[in-house]
Design a protein around this nucleic acid. Structure first.
Length: 571
RNA sequence: UGGGAGGUCGUCUAAUGGUAAGACUGCAGACUCUGGAUCUGCGUAUCGGGGUUCGAGUCCCUGCCUCCCAGCCA
């Protein structure tokens, strides 16, 4: 686990307005409901990578446990061998850890409980509360009824305990092919809650499990596993998302029938974010159809994507803490996440000068072979980060957009006859341009410098309206920069779970732009995941594709750009 | 049309019968060797209709709207 997380845990865990879950826990502690104990858990299914929505749940569960002196387990709900893989287990462990959380020795798998679950299923059969059903999947659906009509009881519902025991044992022994039989709870086919209409507990699946291998050919359903797993682990407050509200009566039914510890389930609203999707199905589709390079593509809202993009765990925690938690279905603006990001990165990222769209700037009166080392501040927000030297010479690169031959109103940067400051260097005045003879395009900007202004201040006290960044041409390091925009153009996730794939049509074709930039030599050889602020541009992070020979850097997020706003309004 | 859960500024969240608050966004300004950061100011909300109460976002009734549920997925 990286050490950088630890320092600012306090900041992200700063006092927040209360929320309804915390209130419930406080109340339970007052009434002694769980003897003052608090134990939570984060229970992912290892069938995909974690995303920012999971981060909300992780922060909630680990945060609450920490706040009340309890513990939080990491448990994999791995009851469906067909979809689950070790790769996902590993990525989830890495991501939770990177976010800054620690589960100690409390790493569990629902598959650890398969033997116990089987025993409990047998107990329920003995009590006449479960039966083996021979209906096909399609028949089960027909028998289930509709919202307005009750379901019909299965013709196999009243088999004897002995027959059920025998059949269930033979299911486990592998005597029957997939889909031919199920073990069902005997509850109430007329219940208005579909989950209580004799839900399936076990299905036959002749498939290898990522942990139990070929030991089982029947697997418990999530609904028969989740509540009991919580119970086994002594979970007090079982926090989950809203869609499981309807399942709570079933979980309660199981623990009551079994007479085991009864955790309290509390449901909260899952996170929705504008301009992206947060469903494993859709994220998987983006990966499989090649719209992105993988689960950790910097445009993905996955934890690994954000990490690669340059987000800090602190920023994500800060965000999760600030969005709060409730039961209302909402959608958080992506800009809010970016605000939290900038707040964190501003305080910690070392600054460096880099030019993303270079144009030559020649300082006409600067000695041809002279090089000066200019002292630059690494982080004005944090003096402890010190200073560095940036080489200055006659030929520089500046940002193409920092020069206008015909400057619009309110444009303060370089233009013919204008004086600006080259950050940490000199005041320069534009003397003219060199144009391409054919296209007429400006290919070089000329200027003269005032030798009296070394470091950036004029002894006569005159001021300039703008400071621009630069890189010395002979010293500059070439690098590839990857500029990202929103993955999707649509606001929300309108077709969530309708099975529709309309979101694919809103994919932003300009979500990735690759450019060749110039950066000051200070950044040469920077390791992947190194973060910088490029002065006046944004926050950036060295990509894992970077090599000692070729620097590759992602734009994490832009700086706020007041000028862009002014210019947009004017146009 | 069955069941479950919700509706407070554009967005997210507070207010737990007693002045509807904060953050983000937006707008205006100050400051600045990053048009960054920071600071100041301004704006916008209790789904509708009844009722209880000295007093209702909060309690009651009623209507409307949104989300979730008919996987041998989780």
């Amino acid at each position: 686990m990286d050490v950088e997380n630890k320092d600012s845990l306090d900041k992200t865990e700063a006092p927040r307005p209360s929320n309804f879950i915390r209130d419930i826990i406080i109340q339970d502690n007052q009434t002694g409901k769980f003897a003052g104990k608090v134990r939570t858990r984060f229970p992912p299914e290892p069938n995909g990578y974690l995303h920012i929505g999971h981060a909300k749940s992780i922060c909630l569960n680990f945060g609450l446990a920490a706040e009340f002196g309890g513990e939080c387990n990491l448990r994999f709900d791995d009851t469906n061998p067909c979809k689950e893989e070790t790769e996902y287990v590993e990525s989830i462990i890495e991501d939770v850890r990177w976010l800054g959380f620690d589960w100690g020795n409390n790493l569990f798998y629902a598959s650890d409980y398969f033997d116990q679950l089987y025993q409990w299923a047998v107990d329920l059969i003995r009590k006449g509360k479960a039966y083996v059903c021979d209906l096909t999947a399609e028949q089960v659906r027909e028998y289930r009824g509709t919202p307005t009509e009750p379901g019909k009881e299965s013709p196999y519902r009243n088999r004897s305990v002995e027959e059920n025991l025998d059949l269930f044992e033979r299911m486990r022994a592998g005597e029957f092919p997939d889909g031919t039989r199920t073990l069902r709870s005997k509850i109430d086919m007329a219940s208005p809650n579909f989950n209580m209409r004799d839900p399936v507990m076990y299905r036959i699946l002749h498939a290898d499990h990522h942990r139990t291998g070929g030991k089982w050919c029947i697997y418990p359903m999530y609904d028969f596993t989740h509540g009991e797993s919580d119970s086994i682990e002594g979970i007090t407050h079982s926090i989950c998302t809203l869609e499981f509200e309807d399942h709570r009566p079933l979980y309660d039914w199981y623990v009551e029938q079994l007479g085991i510890h009864h955790p309290q389930q509390i449901e909260f609203d899952r996170l929705n974010l504008t301009n992206t999707v947060l469903s494993k199905r859709k994220l998987l589709m983006l990966v499989e159809k090649g719209f992105v390079s993988g689960w950790d593509d910097p445009r993905m809202p996955t934890i690994s994507g954000f990490r690669r993009r340059g987000y800090s765990p602190e920023a994500i925690r800060l965000f999760c803490s600030r969005i709060g938690v409730s039961k209302t279905n909402g959608i958080v603006e992506f800009g809010f996440l970016e605000h939290c990001l900038r707040e964190d990165l501003n305080a910690r990222s070392p600054r460096v000068m880099a030019v993303l769209d270079p144009i030559r700037l020649v300082v006409e009166n600067y000695p041809d072979d002279q090089v000066e080392e200019m002292e630059a501040v690494n982080n004005p927000e944090d003096a402890s980060q010190g200073t560095r030297k940036a080489p200055f010479s006659k030929v520089l690169y500046i940002e193409r957009d920092d020069f206008r031959e015909d400057p619009p109103k309110q444009y303060f940067r370089l233009a013919p006859g204008r004086e600006v400051r080259l950050r940490y260097a000199y005041l320069v005045t534009c003397t003219g341009v060199v144009k391409d003879a054919v296209t007429g395009e400006v290919v070089e900007v000329r200027c003269k410098y005032d030798p009296e202004t070394r470091g950036g201040n004029a002894p006569d006290g005159r001021r300039v309206k703008s400071t621009i960044h630069w890189v010395s041409a002979p010293h500059a390091v070439d690098f590839e920069v990857r500029l990202y925009e929103d993955l999707l153009r649509q606001k929300g996730d309108e077709d969530e779970d309708t099975g529709s794939n309309d979101f694919l049509s809103t994919i932003n074709p300009h979500s990735l732009e690759v450019r060749a930039g110039k950066i000051e030599p200070h950044a040469k050889g920077a390791a992947p995941l190194t973060r910088y602020q490029f002065e006046r541009i944004g926050y950036f992070c060295v990509d894992k594709d970077s090599t000692p020979d070729k620097l590759v850097i992602n734009r994490t997020v832009t700086l706020r750009d007041t000028w862009a706003k002014i210019e947009k309004k004017g146009g």
